[in-house]
C-alpha cells in the first residue's frame, strides 16, 4: 500500500507539473519554473504570518500571488528595464528567495516553518502523513488530496483555456489582434505554475518539482510533432517516471525523489537518441524529407 501511495503521489505531481511544463518549454520559459519555485518563499511566509497556521490553502494562495508577482517583475525588468530575459529571472528569484529566508530566520524561528519543510519535502513520508477527518475517519494521505486537487485545477485550466493557451504560446501578437489577452493567460499559467510547485514541494521536494516541470515535457517534445499528443505523452512519461523511480529506489535502497529525477533524465536521454522527431537517429532522415518537400514545392 505504501508503494501505491508513493507512486500515485509521484504520478499526480509529475502530471500537473509536466502538463504546465509543456507550455513553459514552448514559451522558452523553462527556467521560469525554477525561478518561481524559489521566489514563492516570501509568499508562503507572509501567508503564515497572516493566518497564523500552516494551512495548505492559505500557503497556496500566498505562493500563487507571489508567483504571479514574480512573472510581472521579471517581465517589467526585461521589457521596461531592457535587461536580458535570463538576467531578469536571475536577479528576481534570488532576491525574493533571500527575502523569504530572512523573514523565516528573523520572525519564524520558533515555529515549525523552515527551509526544510518548505523546500525539501520527502516523498517517502507521504503514506505516514494521513488526513484524518474530525469524525476520526482516515481519508488517506494528505498529499494525495492536495496533489489530486491541484491536478484537477490544472486540467480545468488547460481544457477550458486550450485554444487560448495554445495561441498565446505560439504567436502572442496575433493572439492580441484577435482579442485574446496575452497578459491574462500568462498570469493564469504562471499562477498555476506557482500553485503547483508549492503544493508539490511539501510532498516531493523542490528538486523533484523542477525536474518534473521540464524533463517529461522535454521528452515528449522529442517524441511527437502534435501538441495534443505531447500532452498525453507527458502523462504517460509522468507515470513511467514515478513508477520506475520507485522501483529503482527500492532496488538500490536510496532516495525516492533522487531515483525519480534520475529516471526522468534517463527517459529524456533515450528519447534524445532514439526519438522519431527530434532524436539524433532521425535528424538526418528529417533533413532529407525537408529538402525533398522544398524541391517538390518549387
Amino acid at each position: 500500500m505504501e508503494a501505491f501511495w508513493i507512486i500515485l503521489t509521484g504520478t499526480l505531481v509529475a502530471t500537473s507539473c509536466g502538463l504546465l511544463g509543456n507550455y513553459l518549454i514552448l514559451r522558452r520559459m523553462a527556467m521560469m519554473g525554477d525561478a518561481i519555485s524559489h521566489a514563492v518563499l516570501p509568499g508562503i511566509v507572509l501567508a503564515f504570518f497572516l493566518t497564523g497556521t500552516r494551512d495548505t490553502i492559505a500557503m497556496l494562495i500566498g505562493a500563487g500571488l507571489l508567483g504571479v508577482l514574480t512573472t510581472f517583475i521579471i517581465d517589467f525588468l526585461h521589457k521596461r528595464g531592457k535587461l536580458q530575459a535570463d538576467a531578469s529571472i536571475g536577479v528576481t528569484f534570488t532576491s525574493l528567495f533571500a527575502i523569504g529566508i530572512i523573514l523565516i530566520s528573523a520572525f519564524a524561528g520558533q515555529v515549525d516553518l523552515d527551509q526544510d519543510c518548505v523546500l525539501y519535502g520527502e516523498i517517502a513520508y507521504v503514506p505516514i502523513d494521513l488526513w484524518i477527518s474530525n469524525g476520526g475517519t482516515i481519508l488517506g494521505p494528505r498529499a494525495i488530496w492536495i496533489s489530486g486537487g491541484v491536478l484537477i485545477l490544472v486540467l480545468l485550466l488547460i481544457s477550458l483555456g486550450y485554444k487560448e493557451l495554445y495561441l498565446t504560446t505560439f504567436d502572442p501578437s496575433y493572439a492580441g489582434v484577435v482579442g485574446i489577452s496575452v497578459g491574462l493567460w500568462q498570469a493564469l499559467l504562471m499562477g498555476a505554475v506557482s500553485m503547483t510547485t508549492v503544493a508539490s514541494f511539501e510532498s516531493v521536494g523542490a528538486i523533484l518539482v523542477v525536474a518534473f516541470l521540464i524533463a517529461p515535457p522535454a521528452t515528449a517534445y522529442l517524441l511527437t510533432t502534435r501538441f495534443r499528443t505531447m500532452l498525453w505523452l507527458t502523462v504517460g512519461i509522468a507515470f513511467l517516471t514515478s513508477t520506475g523511480g520507485y522501483v529503482l529506489a527500492v532496488a538500490i535502497d536510496g532516495s525516492i525523489a533522487g531515483a525519480m529525477a534520475t529516471i526522468a533524465g534517463i527517459l529524456f536521454a533515450i528519447a534524445f537518441v532514439f526519438g522519431p522527431e527530434g532524436g539524433l537517429m532521425s535528424r538526418r532522415k528529417k533533413q532529407a524529407t525537408l529538402e525533398e518537400s522544398t524541391v517538390s514545392a518549387a
Partner: peptide, 16 residues
C-alpha cells in the same frame, strides 16, 4: 518548430 500542423495554424484564424 512548434508542435502544430498546417491546419492547426489556419484554425487559429477562427479563434477570435
Amino acid at each position: 518548430d512548434f508542435p502544430a500542423s498546417v491546419l492547426d495554424v489556419v484554425l487559429m484564424g477562427r479563434y477570435g
